[in-house]
């Protein structure tokens, strides 16, 4: 039994311009201590998926439906709001993309750290303080006692992100949702933060959902990678095989658009042609079909399901033409074709 089981999660927003299906039938499992990468371009529904898990989709206009979202055998969608609130920050924590704006500028670090404990654990102020010091120490912040009394603007970006991580981990949550945790940081700090997350995961056994559009980060961190496009999962596979051989044209395109050191320095960087579709006006078929080089006739009318491309294979792909991708695909080949 997995820690978190999501089956057929759907989130739609009823707007004036029609129904936007931000998340459309996403299913995945998360095991204890596992890192799940969630990849996709902006607007593909990654963040909405996470917010839906935490019950934070504003309603109206949002509507969340699912066959089941089970966290430790409890159905998250059926929980009363108060129960869900107790779960948030306690069992499921989250860290944000931009550490610069994710801390309340008016409260000290200590105040914000102890607030989590205050909300979820019955601890005295002194204990909370001690826990906060330990938490800061855990994420490698020097002289944590002094930091407790400082305000967010007195810390650097990396420090603040560490504080956010410390805050998220203070209650020893089962799941940590990291929503692009390193996007706003420079590369050296990125590495430190990722290293820190991996280290903490090993020590606490926390499962991580790592949302990012940085494929390098995903490759280094994740056990399993889910690729989202237009609110749907298009591919789900263990990290290594996915990067070795993507079985969905969108994944392939994403991989091709990563600049590599051994590539031709003169060549133009590859980009997927076209624009992401309007989520309010999705057709019958595959959402990626208009931008896809592999598209065949039925792609426009029929929606591919997320299935193992070969029977028994431990990965899933939602593409009719995954066999062609397997045969051989390289950006170079594509360039020639273009």
């Amino acid at each position: 039994m997995a820690l978190l089981e999501v089956k057929d999660l759907r989130v739609r927003f009823e707007t004036h311009h029609g129904t936007v299906r931000a998340v459309d039938g996403v299913s995945f499992d998360l095991e204890e201590g596992e890192t799940l990468g969630l990849v996709g371009e902006s607007g593909s529904g990654k963040s909405v998926t996470n917010l839906a898990l935490m019950g934070l989709i504003p309603s109206p206009p949002g509507v969340v439906e699912a066959e089941s979202v089970r966290f430790k055998e409890r159905d998250l969608l059926a929980l009363p709001p108060e129960e869900l609130r107790k779960l948030r920050g306690n069992r499921i924590a989250m860290i944000f993309q931009d550490p610069m704006t994710s801390l309340n500028p008016l409260l000290t670090i200590g105040r914000q750290l102890t607030e989590v404990l205050e909300l979820h654990k019955r601890v005295s102020r002194r204990e909370a303080r001690r826990a906060a010091v330990a938490g800061l120490d855990d994420v490698g912040i020097p002289s944590p006692e002094r930091r407790l009394k400082q305000y967010p603007h007195e810390l650097s970006g990396g420090m603040r992100q560490r504080v956010m991580i410390a805050m998220a981990l203070l209650c020893k949550p089962d799941i940590l949702i990291a929503d692009e945790p390193t996007t706003a940081l420079d590369v050296t700090i990125q590495a430190q933060i990722l290293e820190l997350m991996r280290d903490l995961q090993e020590r606490h056994g926390t499962a991580i959902i790592l949302v990012t559009h940085d494929l390098g980060v995903v490759a280094g961190m994740s056990n399993r990678v889910n690729v989202m496009y237009a609110g749907r999962l298009v591919e789900s596979a263990p990290a290594a095989p996915l990067f070795a051989r993507p079985l969905h044209p969108y994944t392939a395109g994403l991989l091709a658009s990563v600049p590599t050191l051994d590539g031709d320095p003169e060549a133009q960087l590859f980009s997927i042609p076209g624009q992401p579709p309007d989520l309010a006006a999705l057709g019958e078929g595959c959402a990626f079909q208009p931008r896809c080089d592999f598209a065949v006739e039925r792609c426009a009318t029929q929606r591919p399901t997320l299935d193992p491309p070969l029977a028994g294979e431990p990965r899933l792909s939602a593409c009719f033409e995954s066999a062609r991708l397997r045969e051989g695909f390289s950006p170079a080949a594509r360039e020639e074709k273009a």
Partner: peptide, 25 residues
């Protein structure tokens, strides 16, 4: 703003967000 979102995700209730985070700002 993200810190309000963060407070919500931390499990803070609406009155707490209102009087603890928004009003002081």
């Amino acid at each position: 703003s993200e810190f309000i979102e963060a407070a919500r995700i931390m499990g803070a209730s609406t009155p707490r967000i209102l009087f603890g985070h928004i009003v002081p700002n």
